[in-house]
Design a binder for these strands. Sequence first.
DNA 1: CAATGTCAGATGTATTATGCAACTAACACC
DNA 2: GGTGTTAGTTGCATAATACATCTGACATTG
Lengths: 140, 140
Amino acid sequence: MPDRDVTIGTIQRELTAFARRARQKAAQIHPGLSLVTYTMLDHMRETGGCRGTDLAEHFLLDKSTVSRQTAVLERLGLIVREPDPDDRRGQILRPSENGLHLLEEAHRQRRATFEERFTEWGDEDLERFSGYLQRYNAAS
Amino acid sequence: MPDRDVTIGTIQRELTAFARRARQKAAQIHPGLSLVTYTMLDHMRETGGCRGTDLAEHFLLDKSTVSRQTAVLERLGLIVREPDPDDRRGQILRPSENGLHLLEEAHRQRRATFEERFTEWGDEDLERFSGYLQRYNAAS
DNA sequence: CAATGTCAGATGTATTATGCAACTAACACC
DNA sequence: GGTGTTAGTTGCATAATACATCTGACATTG
């Protein structure tokens, strides 16, 4: 059994490798859509519509960046804007029909990649891995 | 026990969350050094010196990007270049004394962050988590 | 051994994501 | 109602990146 330092080093290295690879593959989700814009779109779906400020806060991005990225999403016809009835300074952003379809398709593709990657994993290992990741991420 | 689909979905979400956070914190390693340049520097140390082409291939970057980033590292005094004795077209890049010190310091800091994060984890859980990550990454 | 094609690296140019600062319009509170 | 705050946009600058091109140095083949 390797000692604790070695094991932590391995986890560090493997997580870093994962992050690097994820970043490199990020742009392949949809033409014209980056990982950030895609994730924003997904967040709008999860929340059932949110404001630009919420996105900025959630993703730790400047509001100007959010503004430009949501402009891209609008130009692509993937979101619709509604004036916030409670605060006329803001707008509610939500995926359009096309946006929802794109999200479904992207989910399907990404999920398929993961399914394939885990075909040889047993149920118990999957459970444990999932639990460890949640435990790790929850600590941030 | 949740079913397999739900578990895989959780893993997917948690790994994506990790990647996003890693990217955001990447720039904090050293002033003037990005995650990419830092990782390049580390790769030079691991390999005991390599060429720009090797870096481009390893990190899936264009050679022009590598050229500019290594120029940054040189400007910061973190690497030294030697003509490749076997092929005078190329150069061997390796960390300078300062570069090695920076890597040690960065390793120490990052490791400390990880150590802290895992203080409450038992040895067996650490082992398993490490193994799962390796298994996952090896499948790429 | 000379010519042609390939490779390593550098540089010019363009694109993209990003942040900061300044601005406008709307809100909130006193 | 006036003053300070907030949501969003836009102007400007910066950084990482890719593609195309250029220059040497290598390699292969006639």
